[in-house]
Amino acid sequence: MKMIFGRPLGLTETLQRYCPGCGHGIVHRIIGELLVKLDIRERTIGIAPVGCSVFADEYFNCDMIQPPHGRGPAIATGLKRTRPECIVFSYQGDGDLAAMGTAEIIHAAARSENITVIFINNAIFGMTGGQMAPTTLPGMKSTTSVKGRDIGKQGFPIKVCEMLASLDGPYYLERCAVDTPRNVIRTEKALKTAFANQISNKGFSMVEILSMCPTGWGQTPVQAKKWLGEVMAEYYPLGVFRDLSKEEK
């Protein structure tokens, strides 16, 4: 019998411990496939974050490192500069990248480190139990904003793609989502570009991916997809925010 659908070689056999309907698993699969398709698995070093995907160091079938909360881009810099022949990716959540590691991501982007950053924006701290993230929408409820994020006291969300696009450093910035098959395909394309850029030494690439967290949002998986498409993607418009390859032509 011929297997037509199975686990890509880029992922380990380890059972992934995400909640039903979580977006992390979808993105893992895309990356796992790309590691094989681009034939880079054996020279890739991945960086897991601190967050629900802290266990990513068990899931990706390549060399992995698990750094302190938020410091992925700094670790990536150290890895890439000493092993330029390797492909280095940093996988980060919004607490990790947009709160704890704000300085690291901005400066890695400004230096245009030749790395690939995969930024999972689920608008919440999943791991610690649904507290407000820097990306939590105005009015959105969390366990530290029980009446909804009050912009008067808790400020506005950070739009990371837009913010990094104000820097000259980044080579490629795109925001995608994994709520529909069409968007998943678009995400795969963006991630492929982001890795390809690194392979041809173009510099800093980041793909921000809007991702469901049914548990943290207090929704069913189906509601969560709907909410992502109808509400979250309104606030965080999908699209390409920087692509210097266009200017090279």
């Binding site: 411990r17 995400y18 909640c19 629900c52 791991m127 610690t128 139990g129 548990t215």
Partner: peptide
Amino acid sequence: YGAEMRGG
């Protein structure tokens, strides 16, 4: 508590 709660 914590991550032990994942998985329901």
